[in-house]
Design a protein around this nucleic acid. Structure first.
Lengths: 146, 146
DNA sequence: CAGTATCCCCCCTGATACTG
DNA sequence: CAGTATCAGGGGGGATACTG
C-alpha cells in the first residue's frame, strides 16, 4: 500500500485508514479475527488465500499494530494472531460494512449471517451518525473542514 | 472485483460489501463525492488517478448502483456523477474509517481534516454500536450467527 | 474538458516445493 | 501445522496519444 503519498500527506483520516487497511484481503482477515479466528491455518482455510499472500498480510498488519502475535494457547510451538486495541477499534468499520451490505446487496429472504447481541441474540441496532449533542445527522447535515 | 466467489456465496454481508467497494480507489472516489465532487476532472485531480482507471471505476460504480450520471449542472455537454441512495448509504462506512484514522493514525497536533456538524461547526459524535434496546456494545458483547 | 484506445511494464498472485 | 523460498503468468496500472 502507501500508493498515494500525496493523499496521505493531505491529512485526510479516511485516506490514511484506507492506506492501512484498504487492501482487499486485510479487512477480511480482520473480520475473521472478530469472528474468533487466531491461527494461520484458520485464516487460510476461511479465506482461500494463498500462504504467501496471507503471510505478507499478517506481517503488515502486525507491523502496523493492528494484530499482535502471542504463543499458541494450545501449547504448540506456533503463534496466534490477535487483534490489538487498535485493531479492535475497527469494529465500527466492520459493522458499517455489514449493515450496508445487508441493506443493499441481498435479495429478500436470501440467507445471510447476522451480528447479534450475545446477551439475548437480538440483532444489533443500526448505526447512527450523531451531532455532539445527540441529534441524528444525515450526510448533508455535515461538512468536512480543515 | 468478485475475486472470491465462495465468500460471496457464503452470505457474509461484509464480504459482499468489500466485493462491491473493497477496491483501493472506490472508497476514495466515494469519499470525494461526499465532499461535493461530481465531475470527472475533479475526481482525477483530487485523486491523482489515471484517466483509464478512473473511467473504469466510475463505470463499475454506476453499474453497481452506487453512482448515477446526470447532465452537467453548468450547461456543458458533460456528465456529473452523483451518489444514489445506495451510495449515500455508505456514509457510516466513511465516518467509521475517518474516526479510526483520527484515533490511531495521527500524531498529536498533526493537521487533519475534520467532519463537523454543518449547523454549528462542532465535530460529530463518535460512532457507537448499540443493542436493539440502546445499550452500548463492545465487540465482545456481540456474536455472528447464521 | 471528458473521455477512449493502445501499449508496456511491473507487481501481485497462486502454485509448488521445501523446512522446522 | 506454520510458515519461507522461488518461479512463472496475467492483469491492473500509468503514460501517452487521440477524439468530440
Amino acid at each position: 500500500m502507501v500508493k498515494r503519498v500525496s493523499l496521505w500527506n493531505a491529512g485526510c483520516p479516511v485516506a490514511r485508514s484506507l492506506d492501512a487497511i484498504g487492501d482487499w484481503w486485510s479487512l477480511l482477515i480482520i473480520r475473521d479475527a472478530f469472528d474468533g479466528m487466531r491461527r494461520f491455518g484458520e485464516f487460510q482455510n476461511g479465506l482461500g488465500i494463498s500462504k504467501g499472500v496471507l503471510a505478507t498480510r499478517l506481517r503488515d498488519l502486525v507491523r502496523r499494530g493492528i494484530f499482535e502475535t502471542a504463543p499458541a494457547s494450545d501449547g504448540t510451538a506456533y503463534r496466534e494472531y490477535v487483534l490489538t486495541a487498535k485493531g479492535r477499534g475497527l469494529f465500527p468499520v466492520i459493522v458499517a460494512l455489514r449493515q450496508w451490505g445487508e441493506d443493499h446487496l441481498f435479495a429478500d429472504g436470501e440467507d445471510r449471517s447476522s451480528l447479534v447481541d450475545r446477551e439475548n441474540g437480538e440483532p444489533i441496532a443500526r448505526l447512527v451518525i450523531r451531532s455532539a449533542d445527540g441529534r441524528s445527522l444525515a450526510w448533508s447535515d455535515t461538512r468536512v473542514t480543515g
